[in-house]
C-alpha cells in the first residue's frame, strides 16, 4: 500500500521535473493576490486582523487557496487519465482503489507543498515576517498535505459522480469560488453574516487557513482541532473517492 502511494507520488514529481511550466504559471496568481489585493487592503485597513498587517494575515490564506486550486484540478486529471486509458491500465494492476486515490491525494499534497514554498518566498520578499522555525514549517507541510488530500479527493469524488470533463469543469468552478470566499482566507469569520459563518465552520479550508496562520505567524490558533478536522476530512475524502473510482472504469 505504502509502496503504491510512493509510486504515484514519484510519477507526479517526475512529470513536474520534465515540465516545470506548471510550477511557474501557478506562482503567478498567488503573487498577484498578495501584490494587488494584499497591498491595497493593507492600506485601507478595512479588515480587522487583530493587529497584524493585512498582508501578513493574507499570506497563509493565499497558500491555502493556491494549494486548493492545485488539488481541485485532480478530478479533471483523473477523468483525463480515464479518457486516455492510463487509469484503466492502472486499475488492472494489483493496486487497491484506495491506494490509487491515496497516491493521487498525496501527489496533490506534494505539489501543493512545493507551491506553498513558492508563496512563502514571495511573501517574504514582500516583507511578511513569517516563521523560519523548521518544526513549524514541517507543521505547515503536514497541514497543506492534508488539506490538498481532502480537496483532491473531493474533486475526484465529484469526477466519479459526473463522469465527464465538461460537467466537472463547470462544477469545479462553481464550488471553488464559494469554498474560497466562504472561508477565513481573506477575512475573519466574525465579519461574515451568520449563514456564511455556518458554512465557513463546515469548510475545511477555514481550518487549513487557521492552522497555517497559527504556524506561520505565531498567532493564536486551534491547531489540535484544525489538524483533527483536516485529517478526518482527508480520510473521508479518500473513502468516498475510492468507492466511486470504479464508476470511471465502466
Amino acid at each position: 500500500m505504502l509502496a503504491r502511494v510512493g509510486a504515484m507520488c514519484t510519477v507526479e514529481l517526475q512529470k513536474l521535473r520534465h515540465d516545470r511550466t506548471e510550477l511557474y504559471t501557478r506562482a503567478i496568481q498567488p503573487a498577484l493576490w498578495l501584490l494587488i489585493f494584499g497591498e491595497t487592503f493593507t492600506r485601507i485597513h478595512a479588515i480587522p486582523t487583530g493587529g497584524i498587517p493585512y498582508l501578513d494575515y493574507l499570506a497563509p490564506g493565499i497558500i491555502a487557496q493556491s494549494a486548493m486550486f492545485i488539488a481541485i484540478f485532480y478530478g479533471i486529471m483523473i477523468i483525463w487519465e480515464r479518457d486516455s486509458g492510463v487509469l484503466t491500465k492502472l486499475l488492472v494492476t494489483p493496486t487497491p482503489r484506495a491506494a490509487l486515490v491515496t497516491g493521487k491525494a498525496f501527489a496533490a499534497g506534494v505539489k501543493s507543498v512545493i507551491q506553498a514554498l513558492v508563496v512563502v518566498v514571495i511573501a517574504a520578499v514582500l516583507g511578511v515576517s513569517l516563521t523560519w522555525n523548521p518544526l513549524r514549517l514541517l507543521g505547515v507541510a503536514v497541514i497543506v498535505v492534508l488539506g490538498s488530500a481532502f480537496f483532491s479527493c473531493l474533486s475526484m469524488t465529484i469526477a466519479g459522480i459526473v463522469l465527464t470533463r465538461d460537467r466537472l469543469m463547470g462544477i469545479g468552478q462553481a464550488i471553488t469560488m464559494p469554498l474560497f470566499f466562504g472561508s477565513n482566507a481573506l477575512y475573519p469569520v466574525a465579519v461574515m453574516p451568520g449563514w456564511l459563518q455556518a458554512i465557513s465552520k463546515a469548510n475545511p479550508l477555514s481550518y487549513e487557513v487557521d492552522a497555517l496562520r497559527g504556524l506561520l505567524l505565531g498567532i493564536h490558533a486551534h491547531l489540535g482541532l484544525d489538524f483533527g478536522v483536516l485529517a478526518f476530512s482527508a480520510a473521508l475524502g479518500v473513502t468516498a473517492a475510492s468507492l466511486l473510482l470504479g464508476r470511471l472504469a465502466k
Binding site: 509502496a3 514519484t10 512529470k15 515540465d19 486516455s84 486509458g85 484503466t88 488492472v92 494489483p94 493496486t95
Partner: peptide, 30 residues
C-alpha cells in the same frame, strides 16, 4: 490481476513521463 498483462485498445502511455518511467511505474505497482 497479478497474473494479467493488459494492453487496452486505446494507445495509452503517459505522455508526461519518459518511456522508462512508464515501465518503471508498472514494475513498482506489481
Amino acid at each position: 490481476r497479478r497474473l494479467l498483462g493488459y494492453v487496452p485498445q486505446q494507445l495509452s502511455a503517459d505522455s508526461g513521463l519518459t518511456g522508462r518511467e512508464n515501465v518503471e511505474l508498472f514494475a513498482r505497482v506489481f
